[in-house]
Computed example of a mutant assay.
Amino acid sequence: MTRPADIYLRFLQLTEALRGLPMLAALDPLEERILEFVARATRAKDRLSVRDMMAQSELGSPATLHARITSMREKGWIMLSDTEDARRKQIELTQAALRHFDKLGEAFTKAAKGT
């Protein structure tokens, strides 16, 4: 019988291999947390504006978050799109970021199957 810990450790091993693929520039730990936050909002079909992100004090100060959002845009992980209010920008995942999550999902499925 495969233990859940074995599946998780296999998943970690597979995701480490993904890091070596030439997809997008690496994220620092805070940027990874921000990416996961944006991904969860996207999955829930919530519109996430830059202002909404700046209000997430558990992720850092507004200045820190602004710098990380800029960095993540330059690295190709997120993009900002216009809303009905030209002063507000919505944060969205890029197609490359969505492909990254597809690869993570494939790695999880592979780990769960034990292949």
Rank of each mutant, 00 (worst) to 15 (best):
T2S: 15
T2M: 15
A5Y: 08
A5M: 12
D6V: 08
T15A: 11
E16I: 12
A17H: 13
R19E: 13
R19P: 01
G20I: 04
G20S: 12
L21K: 02
P22H: 07
P22K: 04
M23P: 03
L24F: 05
A26C: 05
L27M: 05
D28C: 03
D28W: 08
D28V: 01
P29S: 02
L30V: 10
E31T: 00
I34Y: 04
V38Y: 04
A39P: 07
A41K: 00
T42N: 13
R43D: 09
R43V: 05
K45H: 11
K45N: 13
R47T: 15
R47D: 10
L48P: 01
S49A: 10
D52C: 04
A55G: 06
A55N: 08
Q56V: 12
S57L: 15
G60P: 03
P62H: 00
A67C: 05
A67F: 06
T70Y: 13
M72F: 07
M72T: 00
R73W: 11
K75G: 00
K75H: 02
G76R: 02
W77N: 02
W77L: 02
W77C: 00
W77A: 02
I78C: 01
I78T: 03
M79A: 13
L80I: 01
T83D: 00
D85W: 03
A86V: 08
E92N: 11
L93K: 01
L93V: 03
L93C: 06
A97H: 08
L98I: 15
L98Q: 11
R99F: 15
D102F: 13
G105L: 14
A107E: 05
F108Q: 15
T109N: 15
A111M: 04
A112P: 02
A112Y: 07
A112K: 11
A112M: 06
K113A: 11
K113V: 04
T115D: 15
